[in-house]
Simulated scan of single mutants.
Amino acid sequence: MGHQLVYRVAVDGKRPVSKTSRTSEFFAYPRRLTIAAVAFFMTSLAVPASYAQSSGPYAGMAGKWAGGGTVTLDDGSNERIRCRAVYDVAGAKMDMSLTCASDAYRFNLTANVVDQGGAIVGQWSETSRGITGSLQGRGGGGNFQVTAVTAGFNANIGLRTTGNKQSVSIRADSLFRAANISLSK
């Protein structure tokens, strides 16, 4: 038998296939298919979380952003500023931090907000000056109009997110009058 096997290999270039190897090939394909299906299913579980972030009230905002713009002070002077923003999105809740600085001016704005069916409510603070207050407004889909209020300070904040670009517009009634900021991811 061994001699016939060697002869067959020499003539055909193939080894004979035994029933056991056919059986293992039969079961190997479904096993590979099952592993591929499990891998696909596991990776698809990650999609709904990112989809929820991109389709919820804070659509496209999650992550780190950077850019610059201008700040207008009470005396009417303008200064160029550099900014960083971080948005931590979890369903209807969002924590954000916006830090901007120029050569002579700096502000650190943080906020914790909740979407209540298109109404945005929360708290904010400007940490470099030790000011805190409430925040309320409307918005969704990455676009918001809100008002930040505390004793002696009111500011209207507009935020618009389109793809990996974001614009922030702040209008206030104090030493800090306005800021126009453009950010990118």
Rank of each mutant, 00 (worst) to 15 (best):
A52L: 11
D95V: 02
R8G: 02
T20Q: 12
G67M: 07
A49C: 08
V149G: 00
A49M: 12
Y29P: 01
G142I: 08
N108P: 00
A179G: 11
L5W: 08
N154T: 14
F176A: 05
N180I: 11
C100S: 11
F27C: 03
G63F: 07
G76N: 08
F27I: 15
V149Y: 05
Q166M: 15
V168F: 01
Y58V: 06
V9C: 00
L5E: 05
G67F: 04
D173V: 07
M96Q: 12
G163V: 09
A59Q: 10
G60M: 11
F40T: 09
T43G: 03
I120C: 09
Y87G: 08
R138A: 03
T150Y: 06
R32H: 09
G122M: 08
V38M: 14
S21Q: 13
T20K: 14
Y7R: 04
S18T: 15
F26K: 04
G130K: 06
T161N: 15
I170S: 04
S102M: 06
M61F: 05
S18R: 14
R171Y: 03
T162R: 11
Y29H: 09
I35C: 03
Q53F: 05
V146W: 01
T127V: 01
N108M: 03
L73Y: 07
S182G: 12
F41H: 05
Y51E: 15
S169T: 04
T43K: 01
A101P: 01
A85K: 01
L98M: 11
R15G: 01
S24Y: 07
V11I: 10
F40M: 08
L45V: 08
G67N: 11
A52P: 05
M42P: 00
G76Y: 01
I181E: 05
D75N: 15
F40D: 02
G163N: 11
F107N: 12
S174Q: 15
D75F: 09
A46T: 13
S174E: 13
V168S: 04
F41I: 14
M61I: 08
I157V: 14
A179M: 08
D12H: 11
F153P: 07
N154A: 10
